[in-house]
């Protein structure tokens, strides 16, 4: 199977994730979009590592996983806190930093 397909799959997954982030209001769903984008990136990293015969991409994929795990912890904590104070999980309700 052509290895290019993996890159295309990664691009499609990334596009779906980005669209989710841009279009959905629910913070949890937006979060899922972000995770999707991260995993699409991981797929691209691994694919390119395979294509070039270089492990750097695989190492970076691990880094991304670690950062994503940390990000999930912090992000979910923020979402829970916002939900407790504002009784809403919509990202459009959180606009206090408006200029």
């Amino acid at each position: 199977m052509d290895i290019t397909n993996y890159v295309v799959l990664a691009a499609v997954l990334f596009a779906i994730g980005a669209t989710t982030v841009l279009l959905r209001r629910n913070a949890i769903v937006v979060f899922m979009g972000v995770e999707l984008m991260l995993n699409a990136t991981n797929l691209a990293f691994v694919t390119f590592a395979r294509m070039h015969g270089d492990v750097t991409g695989q190492v970076l994929a691990f880094f991304v996983m670690v950062v994503a795990a940390a990000e999930v912890v912090v992000g979910l904590a923020i979402i829970v806190t916002i939900f407790r104070t504002r009784r809403s999980a919509s990202v459009d309700d959180v606009n206090l930093l408006k200029g």
């Binding site: 980005a18 982030v21 841009l22 937006v30 990202v91 959180v94 206090l96 930093l97 408006k98 200029g99």
Partner: peptide, 17 residues
């Protein structure tokens, strides 16, 4: 330029994208 600071996370994300 302060109009850019709308407070909506999604518009920031759109800007970045």
């Amino acid at each position: 330029f302060r109009r850019a600071q709308s407070g909506y996370v999604r518009s920031y994300a759109a800007g970045m994208a």
